[in-house]
Design a protein around this nucleic acid. Sequence first.
RNA 1: GCCGCGUUCGUCUAGUGGCCUAGGACACGGCCCUCUCAAGGCUGAGAUCAUCGGUUCGACUCCGAUACGCGGUACCA
Length: 514
Amino acid sequence: MTQVRVRIAPSPTGPLHLGTARTALFNFLFARHVGGTFIFRLEDTDQARSTEAFELDILEGMHWLGLTWDEGPGIGDEPERGAYGPYRQMQRTDRYAAAARRLLDEDKAYYCYCTPDELDAERKRQEAAHQPTRYNGRCAHLTAAERAAFEAEGRKPVVRFRIPPGRTIAFDDIVRGHVEIDSDALGGDLVILRSDGTPLYHFTVAVDDAAMAISHVIRGEDHLSNTPKHILLFEAMGAPIPLFAHLPLILNPDRTKMSKRKSQTAVADYRAQGFIPEAFVNYLALLGWSTGTEEEILSIEELAERFDLATVNRAGAIFDRNRLEWLNGQWIRRLEPSDLIDRLRPFLQSLADADRIDRLPSDDEIRALLPVVQERLPTLASVELIDFLFVRELTVDPGLLVPKRWDAATTLGALSIARDTIAEVGRVSWEAEEIEPPLRELVTDRGWKAGDLFMAVRVAITGKTATPPLFDVMVALGYERTLERLDKAVGMLEALTEPVENVSPAARTIRQEG
RNA sequence: GCCGCGUUCGUCUAGUGGCCUAGGACACGGCCCUCUCAAGGCUGAGAUCAUCGGUUCGACUCCGAUACGCGGUACCA
């Protein structure tokens, strides 16, 4: 078998897109599975829309996902690596010009002087007549005199590639099987060079894939219908025709091709929301492919071991964020503590930047919390779960302070007693196992429900109704600050109950007891 | 319009002629665990395998038609 060479060829006209990432991943997995070469090429010929910032975003996103490539820009410190460069199309313009020149010389291509307006009018006419829209070949056989006349008019020609009429172009797509398309359905002779001389996509892709000796073209299904054009171009250039594999599309919830308008498509956004690459890669790989077994938590290496292009699905798949989040939680739970701490840092930092927390915890502080926090993180950004530990002044909603089964007065009494009980245990020891029993005892003595007391205390010291286990939270908070917050909550409740204090027997009773 | 591709639980999927009264996972419901939230365990509901016809002793699996959906049809990629 000839050397397997595959490529991903994004164009830097936007941030790294989910669909591009998935296509890149499948190319990567295939290359790694068979020991082939994975190439990264930048299709930056659309100078109007391409930016360096997007290029950087794409490179960074690819690195983040762990999709390392063997040839292309952005490997190590080198501007680029590989024997088939350059890997930026704007640095290959001479090659496209030369290829077009050869096609012109062999009369496989010709100059076309039709203006965009004329083409547009013709297209409209065809549509109105319910005919297939295609170039009518007006300039296909111009005489030298006719060409001179157009030139004299100041028209700048495009270069069109001759699409042979009446031919059936067939290929065996690795994922979709045998596909046949009639050359007459291709829209007529194809523009390969704009009137300003710059090359168009279908041309550059064929020239580059040929020059870079690409053996397998693995790309999105949206290119399936265009494949015959590429095959014809390969033939015309005398280049071997690669194998094709067209991947199913990633879809919006309404089953249209995934778009920025209807979905979150930028890989960087998912990263910013606290998804980790292990989970992201795992999820993307299983979108449109499966191992055929019931395994589903798989590392990129395990995926590469099992990957098989022939078993890729043919139907498009809706992107399901729920499943991604679940997978993310699975992967976060598997992380080593020190690794997780490192990954949490940027998210803690951004909480600090947003003034959501007043200080950054030390590694040891986070490490101590991990046993009760790690399994509660669907994303890295969910560390906000414990933000209350790192704020000076806690804001508590008084409404949350009173458990459903209790009134304010009852809560006030209970919290006061609990505060004293906690204060007392804390004087000798500040361990979760030490704080819990006396409070349980208190609950039993008073005939309360443990959940009610604990909830009141929880809200008092965290401001939240959902937190890691209460006593672990207290330990992390510290003796002093726990009491401070309890006192503050008692104060809030006193203010709340004041007006009715004289007429509330319950409140009076509890006060006496306290 | 024309051409191409697709169609199994809400979603991702298993299934390549009998193992399927269709399996797993996410999401959803219940129970257990439990101080809340998670995590975990058990469990429930959820798919006339798009429809119709054919081939076959037998079809989710093969063939055809239809419907619906999507993609392509640019001097975008």
